[in-house]
Computed example of a mutant assay.
Amino acid sequence: MILVLRALGVGDLATAVPALRALRAGHPGEELVLAAPAWLGPLVELVGGVDRLLPTDDLGPPPWSGPPPEVAVNLHGRGPRSHRMLAGAGRLVAFRCPPAGHRDGPDWDDDEHEVDRWCRLLHWYGIPADRTDLALRRPPAGRLPAGVTVVHPGSKVEAKRWPADRFAALARRLADRGHRVVVTGSTGERELAAGVAAGAGLPRSAVLAGRTDLGELAALVAAARLVVSGDTGVGHLATAYRVPSVLLFGPVPPARWGPPADRPWHRVLWAPGEDCPAAPGVGTASGWAALPVDRVLAAVDEAEETVRV
């Protein structure tokens, strides 16, 4: 068995897809098990190649209950906690971390793109990985509409949220242009999504926050006309399905988490702000003031124009 640790969220799983595919191709006869949160199950199915999901929500005791895996792959972080969690495996594929007793593997690079990071790790261990292999399987259409413009104002990290009133103004102007706008989000973001929809003059039926599971959200994005979101999982779904998108980054630089630079239908706007004292090199939310609605609308036009050409 090959156990892969990635106990994080939607964007984290999406950026690990090339590495997961490389592990599948490199070990076709082995059982590939992913240790990740159970709620990611619908998305894991769309990755393909993973034989089993081992529900794992934190970096606690080893996630296996029987014999340890022959190989454990740490796609979660740099250690030491994640390394120690996997320490009982026969072999650990991970970044070098002497505090965890792991002196094998390449050195960590803070400034590396998340996709490149895990591909480089596997290359170091002799497993070739293709960083462009980001596509997810297309889910069934289901009950949700196709051809809509998805506006996703939320994020688990408050500093990553473009102001809600600007999302509302953007949604209103998109609707005035003929876009069928829906507002998505998690169950905890229903109030935020409802406020954005109300500010945009959209009907209550346009608020899908908390009304879709992860598989349905993926289907909605896969069939969408356009996605506008912050630096969060929905943006990574747009990348996976090659759906035109405008992604609003702030404070984390898009060089670490953004879509491939060679895809002009994904437009990235970055509002870095000032350096955050707690995390040098990462901006604060103050940069949002420099990102007006008109600039986002211009990026929408640019993204859509690339599709028409």
Rank of each mutant, 00 (worst) to 15 (best):
E216Q: 10
L40S: 01
G77N: 08
H123Y: 08
K156H: 13
G281V: 04
P163A: 14
R172W: 04
L92M: 07
L40C: 07
V300H: 10
G215D: 05
D107L: 15
L23G: 03
G154D: 06
G210N: 12
G188N: 03
V71N: 05
A25Y: 02
P272Q: 02
P145H: 11
P55L: 11
P280S: 08
G48W: 07
G235F: 09
L214F: 14
H266K: 02
A198S: 13
L134R: 03
A299H: 04
R177Q: 15
L86Y: 00
D133E: 07
W64N: 12
A261K: 08
G60A: 05
W64L: 08
A197K: 02
R21P: 07
A240K: 01
S286G: 15
H236P: 11
V4K: 03
L32G: 05
S186K: 09
D110L: 13
D275L: 00
G29D: 06
L121D: 00
L92R: 00
A285Q: 07
C119M: 08
A255F: 04
C97W: 10
G199H: 00
D133Y: 00
G147M: 11
H236Y: 14
V148K: 11
L248F: 03
L5C: 12
L214Q: 12
P99L: 14
V293A: 05
